Simulated assay, not measured.
Amino acid sequence: MTITLAEEITLLSLDDESGEAKERQAASWAVAGGILLDLALAGRVSVAGGRLTVTDGSPTGEALLDERLALIAAWAERRSRAPKVTEWLTKDQGKAPAATVARLCERGLVVKKKRRVLGVFPVRRYPEADGSAERELRERLRSVVLDGAAPDERTAGLIALVHGAKLHRLAFPGQSRKEVAARMEKLAEGQWAAEGVREAIRNMQAAMAAVTVAAVVAATG
């Protein structure tokens, strides 16, 4: 089963048993970035000078990507110039995770469960229903990051997003963060894609770094 980058990041962030989302804020930026990167890899959007342009509005055949592509196109059309990548990520990071989880439910990889906290507040959780996709994902990441296998384009892009959002512990629980981060940074900087795609990645990483710094400042202020 081929799933999107956003879905892969979401699977890494959801606890298999409880279905609770871990590192929610950072993961939401990575999920939004994953959708954008998939669209860039599919030739539907491009990034130049930090600005985002829809280059091909035709459907990809993947519902999650096509819905976002239509939203980007409509949003960009109302603006006087091409919007910045960071503007779209800021706009979409609060909404993309819910759309991505819904797609995972449709695929039967997670299941939605509802309960009430203190008998009043509704809470939704998404525990694992079929672990095959996540097992393949983690094996692929381990093969590249820990065992030195050459990544394909999408796996390298996923690693760049995970590294940019500092989700190392979600991807490699129990491993030395320092060791994993060093290897992921080297892979993220590799010449694995066209310059336009690499520029999109750099913009996403900058946006995720900015929100991480802001979160730290708010926590220590």
Rank of each mutant, 00 (worst) to 15 (best):
T4R: 06
A6C: 06
A6R: 03
E7M: 14
I9T: 02
L11C: 06
L12T: 02
E17C: 00
S18T: 15
S18E: 07
E20M: 12
Q25L: 12
A27W: 01
S28K: 05
A30N: 01
V31C: 07
G34Q: 02
L36N: 01
A40Q: 01
A42F: 05
G43I: 07
S46C: 02
S46Y: 01
G49E: 12
G49L: 07
G50V: 00
T55A: 12
T55S: 13
P59D: 14
P59L: 09
T60Y: 08
E62D: 13
A63E: 13
E67S: 13
A74Q: 12
W75F: 11
E77M: 08
E77D: 12
E77R: 10
R78A: 15
S80K: 12
P83E: 07
K84V: 08
T86L: 10
E87H: 08
W88Y: 15
L89W: 02
A98I: 11
T100P: 11
V101L: 11
A102N: 11
V110N: 09
V111M: 13
V111N: 10
R116D: 12
L118G: 06
L118E: 12
G119P: 02
V120A: 14
P122Q: 09
P122K: 11
P127I: 00
E128V: 00
E128G: 08
A129R: 07
D130I: 00
E136Y: 10
L141M: 08
R142H: 11
V144N: 02
E153M: 13
T155L: 09
A160W: 06
H163L: 01
A165W: 04
L167Q: 08
A171Q: 04
F172G: 05
F172V: 06
P173F: 06
Q175W: 13
Q175P: 00
R177Y: 08
V180Y: 05
V180W: 06
V180Q: 06
A182R: 15
M184S: 03
L187H: 07
A188D: 00
E189P: 02
G190A: 15
A193K: 03
V197Y: 00
R198Q: 13
A200L: 15
R202P: 03
A210E: 12
T212G: 09
V213H: 11
V217E: 11
